[in-house]
Every structure is written in C-alpha cells, then in structure tokens.
C-alpha cells in the first residue's frame, strides 16, 4: 500500500513492482487545483457544457 506523506501531501513511497507503482500519483499542484474554488468554477461550467453537448448528440 502506498504510504502517504502527510507533510508534503503526496506519495512518499510506492513499493516497487506493486500494482500501485505502475500508475500516476498526483502531486501538490494537481491536488490543489482539484479543490481550488476559482478553478473549479471554470471546470463546473466546462463539465456542464460537455454534458449538454453529449445529451444533444445522444437524443434521436
């Protein structure tokens, strides 16, 4: 299991050759953006636009 470093907020150690070692682990900036209200307001609009386009394309 990946050990979480509470100070740096990202993975300190991933065991080599474990399933977890073969994937991406987000670092500080990525994690910050996920809950940054200003950025997420923009993403909120973007997600709604994407979903609206999808709905329009899907109805026949």
């Amino acid at each position: 299991m990946a050990e979480i470093n509470k100070e740096s907020k990202h993975v300190k150690h991933v065991e080599p050759y474990s399933p977890q070692s073969g994937t991406m682990i987000p670092l500080g900036t990525q994690k910050f953006l996920r809950t940054c209200v200003l950025w997420q307001l923009i993403r909120f609009v973007a997600i709604n636009i994407k979903m609206t386009i999808l709905i329009v394309k899907s109805h026949r």
Binding site: L33, R43, F44, I47, K50, I53
Partner: peptide, 14 residues
C-alpha cells in the same frame, strides 16, 4: 472529443 474524465470539486457540485 466526446469521451472525457476529470476529478474535482466541480464534479461534486454537478
């Protein structure tokens, strides 16, 4: 272009 994925607070609001 129609297949997307992201994680964040905005998706929770959605």
């Amino acid at each position: 272009n129609g297949t997307t994925g992201e994680i964040g607070l905005a998706a929770h609001w959605v």
